[in-house]
């Protein structure tokens, strides 16, 4: 704290969509309290501080820094190190910072394949010189540098030490406000902060626990993609063959998606005690496949299962939609 005695607040976006910033603004009029309590010292989306300003701050100057976005390139990584150094409490805010999220789906492919698509093959691209960005380019005036694009997307905690994690894509505003209140109480009244390393602003249990749809024994004979079926209201989606990540996903959002007929995509990450969200979901999905009897011929049994599994499109992309960077395997192997 300095001049005005207020605690310092920072927020930064690395590889992200900007939704996390919007969800902070979605706490509504509470944003005025944030402004009253904190002195904003860095927040590119809302204020005009430069990286240079942050470099000039003493270490630990920022009391609370919400870091959203994954580590996709060297600039993201550099900022992660800088903000770690300048912050007392560094929070991995949202699914990208926590576990890679949508950007980390690119870990199923390679940097070269991404560049090929984005800069050369995409139908809307006109690039006769076949120019691909290079970290260093020589021009008459000297050298130009841009950040290096990494092959593998990482989560924040894979590059720096993280104090807390708030999951969600994006985190729900009521959860953000609950967390901010705890931090404000700690900073202004000396209340205790949760233990370091905690996942805050969420529950330990699964989305299914929050979901109001009645659950009964599930037996699926085929799976449906969202556009292939209009869900029957008031019935568990998984029971209807619509993939819903509820059983493998941490609650806290209020089971928003299944309540409106959309399968949970898994954005709050794995529930408490689960190392790999995809593996957990894989088990859940395998359990609900309702075909096959023990008396069947072994080959026949496999064929029955295969027929059902053929209707489940892109299992890896579905099970790891949000948690790829944090998964046990972390990325795909690229054949050369």
């Amino acid at each position: 704290m300095n001049e005005n005695g207020k605690p310092k607040f920072g927020m930064y976006w690395a590889s992200s969509c900007g939704g996390c910033e919007i969800s902070v603004l979605n706490i509504g009029e509470h944003i005025l309290t944030v402004d009253e309590v904190f002195d904003v010292v860095f927040w590119p989306v809302a204020t005009d501080f430069k990286y240079e300003d942050v470099r000039g701050y003493p270490d630990g100057y920022i009391d609370l820094c919400l870091f959203n976005g994954a580590i996709r390139n060297s600039e993201n990584e550099e900022m992660a190190h800088l903000l770690r150094q300048k912050s007392k409490v560094l929070v991995a805010f949202g699914s990208c910072a926590y576990e890679g999220c949508i950007p980390a789906l690119a870990n199923f492919t390679s940097r070269e394949a991404i560049f090929q698509t984005v800069y050369l093959d995409s139908p809307s691209v006109d690039n006769p010189g076949r120019v691909i960005p290079q970290p260093v380019t020589a021009v008459p005036e000297g050298q130009l540098h841009i950040p290096e694009f990494y092959n593998t997307v990482k989560s924040l905690d894979q590059v720096v030490d993280v104090d807390y994690t708030i999951p969600g894509c994006p985190p729900e505003p009521h959860q953000i406000w609950a967390v901010l209140q705890v931090v404000v109480a700690a900073l202004t009244q000396g209340a205790e902060l949760p233990p370091k390393g905690s996942i805050i602003g969420a529950k330990e249990t699964a989305v299914c626990d929050e979901c109001l749809h009645p659950k009964s024994e599930k037996k699926i004979f085929r799976f449906y993609r969202p556009y292939e079926k209009v869900p029957e209201p008031g019935v568990c989606l998984l029971e209807q063959g619509i993939v819903c990540m509820g059983p493998a996903t941490r609650g806290g959002c209020g089971a928003l998606c299944p309540q409106v007929g959309m399968g949970c995509r898994g954005c709050y990450g794995p529930l408490g005690g689960v190392a790999d969200q995809g593996a957990r979901m894989l088990s859940a999905v395998a359990s609900v496949i309702g075909v096959g009897e023990p008396e069947m011929d072994e080959r026949m049994l496999e064929r029955e299962f295969e027929t059902v599994m053929d209707t489940l499109v892109d299992p890896a992309g579905t099970f790891y939609r949000f948690s790829m960077a944090h998964s046990l395997l972390k990325r795909a192997k690229i054949k050369d």
């Binding site: 390679s110 394949a113 092959n151 892109d314 192997k333």
Partner: peptide, 21 residues
């Protein structure tokens, strides 16, 4: 796998993930 997971090198062949889509 430990070496695969640490990959930050080069390759240009599309993965089976894309093939399977």
């Amino acid at each position: 796998w430990p070496q695969v997971a640490a990959l930050n090198g080069k390759s240009h062949v599309l993965t089976p993930a894309i093939a399977s889509v």
